[in-house]
Design a protein around this nucleic acid. Structure first.
Length: 263
DNA sequence: ATGCCTAATGCAATTAGA
């Protein structure tokens, strides 16, 4: 079973790229971020024509997350992170699909730092850590997938020294990421490719993709029972070279089917 | 320090992204 995350940077502006990639890669479950469209403008029909049902949590202009599936019903668990009823930004959606709890998230960017946006990022991260702890304690197979807006280590940045003061690489943000991992989550891509520079984002400026001036900020974190099923993980980086493409590339994991002998 | 690019909104220029 292939599960992916993809920050599309505008689902309607990038729809042809999204559909082409889905048709080519045929992932089973996909978490999308940055829909940048109101709920009523979610392109349900073209996705359904490709065999995907969808659940989305969007808002006008900014943010917006969705879960797509072609392997069975999407059972919504929650939309929005608990812990702040005043938070109106559509950045979190959680559903049960094919026996797995899928948490799709779009962590705040946080720039400029310092400032209110950075404070919001840190508070949002704290809420994620608290909620992820309850998911971990549940014992269910869980995957936290999305745009975390964090490069965990120097290896995840083309030029780390230039990013030290940035909200995506600040010490307190990386510390929050590792505090989350310490609950028992496995960073799927890094666990299978230790020591390898792999990026998921290249900005539109300065010919960044051609220079491979990238960042690794999109992550798939697996609970222990899913880590045992992890076969492969990768980035479909060629999608970043397409016309009208997002500044992110899709990231995916391949999981072994549940063993009947063990159940 | 800022622009470089791109999208959404809405029809010009601003906000936001990372």
């Amino acid at each position: 079973m292939k599960i992916a995350t993809y920050n599309v940077n505008g689902i309607n502006g990038r729809l042809s790229v999204l559909l082409q990639w889905l048709d080519e890669a045929k992932p089973d479950i996909i978490c999308l971020q940055e829909l940048k469209a109101p709920n009523e403008k979610f392109p349900q029909k073209p996705l359904r024509d490709l065999g995907y049902t969808a659940l989305w949590h969007a808002q006008k202009s900014w943010n917006g997350v969705a879960i797509l599936s072609r392997v069975g019903e999407i059972h919504e668990v929650r939309r929005g992170l608990p812990g702040n009823p005043d938070d109106m930004q559509s950045r979190y959606i959680e559903a049960a699909v094919a026996g797995i709890v899928i948490a799709g998230l779009y962590l705040p960017n946080g720039n400029p730092r310092p400032g209110p946006k950075f404070d919001y990022k840190l508070r949002w991260f704290e809420r994620l850590i608290a909620h992820a702890a309850t998911l971990m304690e549940s014992g269910h197979p869980v995957i936290l997938a999305g745009d975390f807006n964090v490069m965990p280590t120097d290896l995840d940045v083309y030029k780390p020294e230039r990013w030290l003061d940035d909200a995506l690489f600040a010490p307190e943000v990386r510390a929050a990421y590792f505090e989350l991992l310490e609950q028992g989550w496995t960073d799927a891509l890094r666990s299978l490719h230790p020591g390898e520079a792999i990026y998921t984002f290249w900005d539109y400026f300065r010919n960044a993709y051609a220079r491979n001036a990238g960042l690794r900020i999109d992550h798939l974190l697996l609970s222990p029972s899913l880590t045992d099923r992890l076969i492969a993980a990768g980035v479909d980086r060629h999608v970043r070279s397409w016309e009208k493409t997002s500044d992110h590339a899709p990231v995916w994991v391949d999981l072994r089917n549940r063993s009947k002998a063990k159940r």
